[in-house]
């Protein structure tokens, strides 16, 4: 169960690995795969799951603790925060940063806003339908 969504992480080499780990956690939270209050793997387990060195896992956990994304109380295992405000902020942060980079690249082409929004809507619906189908197809085989 723990393995779900962990082994498929592909890192790029130019961004700090620990920040990519943090980002991965945020994505999991935003999509609901990680729930508020859910226990997360220990840093040792995480290192093994993501095939990164334990120092990097440690650094990622420290960063997430600083951002109050996860909570570690005494010797008990770390959990995802239950603060609704933080969880909401994650979602909007991810959307905002994705839209930002989209806007930066599309700005160069200088498209009218309406045309762009139409195109986005069609593409997005198509893409979501396709990936949903693929996921269902995948789960049948499991």
């Amino acid at each position: 169960m723990m393995n779900e969504g962990w082994t498929s992480v592909v890192f790029n080499n130019r961004d700090p690995v620990y920040l990519q780990v943090v980002r991965h956690f945020k994505e999991q939270i935003a999509t609901g795969r990680l729930k508020a209050g859910q226990v997360i793997p220990s840093r040792r387990e995480l290192g093994a799951l993501l095939k990164i060195n334990p120092n990097t896992a440690q650094k990622a956990y420290k960063e997430m603790e600083e951002q109050r994304l996860i909570i570690t109380e005494g010797n008990s295992p770390s959990r995802i925060t239950e603060e609704a405000a933080i969880l909401r902020a994650i979602r909007s942060e991810l959307i905002e940063s994705a839209v930002e980079s989209f806007v930066v690249s599309v700005r160069r082409i200088d498209v009218p806003v309406d045309e762009l929004l139409d195109l986005v809507r069609t593409k997005y619906v198509e893409e979501r339908a396709r990936t949903n189908q693929a996921e269902e197809g995948g789960s049948i085989h499991d």
Binding site: N12, N13, R14, P16, V17, Y18, K59
Partner: peptide, 14 residues
Amino acid sequence: CEEMRTTEGKSVID
């Protein structure tokens, strides 16, 4: 390595 990625955005191969 992580410092290099943070400050200069370069991978080890770069």
